[in-house]
Structures are given as structure tokens and as C-alpha cells.
């Protein structure tokens, strides 16, 4: 059954590749930026981060990152969590 759905969908073009406008989104430079860009942009454009600023404290950003890991299956190493959360808190955290 899944195979049928799969072959049906292959007839279409997948729209996963970055759409034009997405390349205009830029993150604040700073330690951890490259890692955030790499890990987060696999599944979504980086405007998700900008859009959700600046009202989350560190615990709020950590909860988001852990949700992406546990629920959405983001392949983020445990040792990278602090770097990512620090970056998000520093540049996009509650002010």
C-alpha cells in the first residue's frame, strides 16, 4: 500500500529544495550559527527561528530543540544541543 502511494507521488516533483525566497533569510552571525543552519534547515526554512523571536527564554528554546530531536527525529548530537540552544538564546531569546 505504501509502495503504491510512493510510486504515485514520484510522478510529481518534490518541492523540498529551498524555494527561491528562502535564500533571503539570514541568521545572526555568531558561535553556533553554522551548526544551527545545518541542523535546522534540513526540514524547514530558517525564518521559523526569526518568526519565533524574541520571547523564548533558554528553557523555551531548549524545549523546541528537544522536540525537534525526539518528535521530529532531527539528528542532533547530545553534545551539540547546548551550542544550538546557546546560540538561539543569545540571538533570538527573550529580551
Amino acid at each position: 500500500m505504501n509502495g503504491r502511494i510512493g510510486s504515485m507521488l514520484l510522478l510529481g516533483l518534490l518541492a523540498a529544495a529551498a524555494q527561491g525566497g528562502e535564500t533571503s533569510v539570514t541568521l545572526a552571525s555568531g558561535e553556533g550559527m553554522a551548526l544551527v543552519q545545518l541542523r535546522c534547515s534540513t526540514c524547514h526554512s530558517l525564518d521559523y527561528i526569526l518568526m519565533n523571536s524574541s520571547f523564548l527564554a533558554r528553557a523555551g528554546w531548549e524545549a523546541e530543540v528537544r522536540k525537534m530531536m525526539k518528535v521530529m527525529g532531527a539528528p542532533i548530537a547530545e553534545t551539540d544541543v547546548a551550542v544550538i540552544v546557546d546560540y538561539l538564546t543569545q540571538h533570538y531569546g527573550a529580551t
Binding site: M8, G12, L14, A15, A16, H44
Partner: peptide, 15 residues
């Protein structure tokens, strides 16, 4: 979810 297929109406089936 980011992968949104362009569905071909002739190939589409509702199971």
C-alpha cells in the same frame, strides 16, 4: 511537512 508532491490527477488514487 516540506516535501509536497505535485500530484498527477490521472495517477492519483484514493485508497
Amino acid at each position: 511537512l516540506a516535501n509536497i508532491p505535485r500530484i498527477d490527477a490521472d495517477a492519483w488514487r484514493l485508497q
